[in-house]
Write a protein that binds this DNA or RNA. Sequence first.
DNA 1: TTAATTCCGAGTATTTTACTCAAGTATTCT
DNA 2: AGAATACTTGAGTAAAATACTCGGAATTAA
Lengths: 162, 162
Amino acid sequence: MRLTTKGRYAVTAMLDLALHSEQGPVSLADISARQGISLSYLEQLFARLRHFKLVKSVRGPGGGYRLEGDTANISVAQVVDAVSESLDATRCEGKGNCHEGEVCLTHHLWEDLSAQIHRFLSEITLADLVARNDIQAVRQRQDIRLANSHHDETHIAISEIL
Amino acid sequence: MRLTTKGRYAVTAMLDLALHSEQGPVSLADISARQGISLSYLEQLFARLRHFKLVKSVRGPGGGYRLEGDTANISVAQVVDAVSESLDATRCEGKGNCHEGEVCLTHHLWEDLSAQIHRFLSEITLADLVARNDIQAVRQRQDIRLANSHHDETHIAISEIL
DNA sequence: TTAATTCCGAGTATTTTACTCAAGTATTCT
DNA sequence: AGAATACTTGAGTAAAATACTCGGAATTAA
């Protein structure tokens, strides 16, 4: 469980997707416009999200991405895990080449911590985030703004509101 | 709250320090030998740990580092915070230049999560870690090994045991 | 067919990580 | 006082991760 801005971008994008999933598939271009994340970067992130079965793609015009399954079944932990490597950084790498059969200790300890953080983030779902009224308030502002301005260059990104 | 290998190195080093603090100051060279972390990198980490008043340096022969205060008062969160930048990655950066006075939303959300993880790691102290008997077992092996071998090149790092 | 979209691969700039090297400073032991 | 020990500082560097660009191919609705 690595915790960097990359995971944060992914959570933001997934939240945006959750907020707009009612009106059919959401294009990455729209997410890019609303959240201020580059399109190509989103493509990379969504390739992994798709691979982990968190989203489903619809190709062609009017296409985009849909959440795979219900928002209540997608946790923040899943999203973060999908886009970020798990951190090992040990000489042994779980292969058991720790000295003389003695199993790793610092390793276990850290994985312990890591597992607990993971458990914690597993209990927060996209549905929980969507239910927050501060999020709902922003959603509306963003929608209006995107509708008004396909020529306008000012946006309110969710990240500017979180 | 960023969670990478850097923080892990710091926690490992601090744990090593805690395990050997009874016999006077611990030199970075010893920690380097036991934990397999390069001396220069430890120097950088400890410069920050010192700056955050988590350790105290003792110069001169027989010198090294001591923990500043009791192990029960040093949390994992403090150690991680000391060595890693806090992740912002927002266009607004808390400066309130979020659009039209509307406060950041995704920002708040993430900081919320971040704060909760922080709280979680704040409740785990070095004393808690030292108390684990798997750690104690390793400690002894490492001590023997370091004593026997200032010419020997095989070590059991805590990280090989965690 | 055309346009919108996902998909895919290569490439790149920036930052972070992890480390090396070298010179300097403080302290203690003799 | 002088030498040894060890911290301190700073510059520099290689590798990895991050964040992004670009070009083009595949798909499909209209």
